[in-house]
Amino acid sequence: MAPQRFQVTLEGHGQANVYEGERVLVALERAQGFGQLKNLPRRLPVGCRRGGCGVCRVRVLAGAYDSGPMSRSCVSAEDEAAGLVLACCIYPRSDLFLRLETPVVVKAKGERALQPV
């Protein structure tokens, strides 16, 4: 049976298809590759894709999801309970509405790598 398909909306930037069992960040990266995400500050913030670096932090505004372990140095238990999570560690159970809340500005040429929010 084909995996169930959901739609993830990234507030202000566009929508992407995301499949059951798929990391939401991976679906967003694919959508970026297809040119489906607009008006990103620079590019989609992508780091380790495995919950360790915190670069892909998003706030889930609506929708249901499962989550895997994410580093507590990036996302506290309170953050996680409030829906502030790493996009690489959540898996959709419904359509999702997300807002980028990356803790760092991903480096563009000639700029500092790390800036406070």
């Binding site: 670096c53 670069v55 991903v106 790390l114």
Partner: peptide
């Protein structure tokens, strides 16, 4: 011949 975005910003 250039750094990628992650070299200076992605650490654990």
């Amino acid at each position: 011949r250039q750094l990628n975005d992650a070299f200076l910003s992605v650490v654990s």
